[in-house]
Design a protein around this nucleic acid. Structure first.
Lengths: 194, 194
DNA sequence: GTCTATATCTGGATAGAC
DNA sequence: GTCTATCCAGATATAGAC
């Protein structure tokens, strides 16, 4: 991959993440990359393909490295806590990611194959073991998944609303997210630990 | 407001909510309303103004009728529970609303005036009273706000992801949301009640 | 108020020189 | 590989008849 291609990808990522597919202009990407519009087509043929390239990469990163976490030898709730902390740290670095992924996930119907579909399985298995041992409260697995992801990801989805509601600056928000890591772990323990 | 105008608004709402501003076509709105494209401009001048009309209405409804709930005479946690149940019911009727509002909230910078900015105040006041009485656990108010809204709204933001991850149908999802009401109340009590 | 026809412009994509 | 110039479809918006 040469330098021009990389510059394009970098620019496309920024523009698409901020404005979405429909709101993005090839001209804007070219300008940001400091090259000509024709180059975009030379390297990626079409807007569609360029977008798909960006989306697939972002999508795969949105589904966090949950597998490695859940293969560790520890209690289910401890795994959830480790996951939450790592995930929030990741989202602090990529605050636009959740909204971008959720907006576009339904547009391309053939992304199922990229999905870590064993993720719910891994989670479920680890969960059931600890329920049996009496280490973990009984919940509906789907609700646990929603709840934990929500605790971590919702603040980033709601960032513009929150800064407005609370009259907070960007710095305030990121400070709040630093604290959110401890808050998340506390909540997870209260909710799921026996 | 005559019948044509209403049909347009109805159609515009559906199209904008589903495709967003950039992804929506005036032609699509006209088709859905069963009228001509020119009529849209006759009644609303431009796409921008039509969109703004829809967004403002949706935006004001996204901020739930929290005021009336929080003026009731009861404990803070009970208020949260009532709010959660009402709000999830509302979102079941308007599942696209959260994503739509969060996507566009940053685009129009002058919506601050429409904001129920006394909402955090009302919440805070009720909260502090009960903390003092020892009825409610100590938390950071901003974290409470994020958490409660997240418990209710995140599932709807994540709907496409969830149905994909869980291999669920639309019916399954709405069934899950019905159960979410009880789950939400349970979680709120565990998290915030002494 | 409602329609058809049309003007105008924007933006993705291509041709072709270098 | 990189650029300039250009094509062309599609979208908003308007003109003008009825």
């Amino acid at each position: 991959m040469n330098q021009t291609e990389e510059k394009i990808l970098e620019a496309a990522e920024k523009v698409f993440l901020k404005h979405g597919y429909d709101g993005s202009r090839m001209q804007a990407i070219a300008d940001l990359a400091g090259i000509n519009k024709a180059m975009l087509h030379y390297y990626f043929r079409s807007k569609d393909l360029l977008f798909e390239r960006i989306f697939k990469e972002k999508f795969s990163r949105f589904f966090p490295a949950i597998e490695e976490t859940f293969q560790l030898e520890m209690h289910f709730v401890d795994k959830l806590c480790i996951f939450a902390e790592k995930y929030i740290d990741f989202l602090i670095q990529n605050p636009y990611l959740p909204l971008f992924v959720l907006n576009n996930i339904n547009k391309n119907p053939d992304f199922s194959k990229n999905l870590p579909l064993n993720m719910p399985q891994l989670l479920l298995q680890s969960y059931l073991e600890d329920v049996e041992k009496g280490l973990c409260k009984m919940h509906q697995p789907a609700q646990i998944l929603i709840t934990v992801l929500g605790i971590c990801a919702f603040p980033f989805l709601a960032k513009p609303m929150m800064t407005l509601l609370l009259g907070a600056s960007d710095e305030d928000f990121f400070e709040l997210m630093q604290q959110r890591k401890e808050e998340a772990k506390k909540q997870i323990r209260i909710l799921f630990e026996v």
